[in-house]
């Protein structure tokens, strides 16, 4: 039998480490759009980590938080893109 719980938690740890790596791009830039893109990738990682934790710890209510995150991640990315462009119209 393969220890599924340990695997899921291990995958979550790997995802957090990858998020830390992507953080370099968010700090470095050089443009604002690079930073927003890095934050978008970070947000997707966050959603996946939450789903992994929900499966590993067997707390299905974490999936609700993951859904809210997914919504919010999209909203923040589009909002920052819109605010940084003077003429509007990013969609």
């Amino acid at each position: 039998m393969i220890p599924t719980t340990g695997l899921l938690l291990g995958a979550a740890a790997v995802f957090v480490v990858l998020a830390i790596a992507v953080l370099y791009r968010a700090v470095r830039g050089p443009t604002t759009q690079d930073r927003v893109l890095a934050i978008n990738v970070l947000g997707t990682n966050t959603v996946v980590i939450l789903a992994l934790l929900a499966a590993a710890l067997d707390v299905p209510s974490f999936l609700d938080i993951a859904l809210v995150y997914a919504l919010l991640n999209f909203l923040v990315a589009v909002a920052i893109s819109k605010f940084t462009v003077d003429r509007g119209g990013v969609m």
Partner: peptide, 14 residues
Amino acid sequence: PTAAHAIARAAYEE
């Protein structure tokens, strides 16, 4: 992909 499109479009407009 929609968010990535918005970001790329914002970069182009900038």
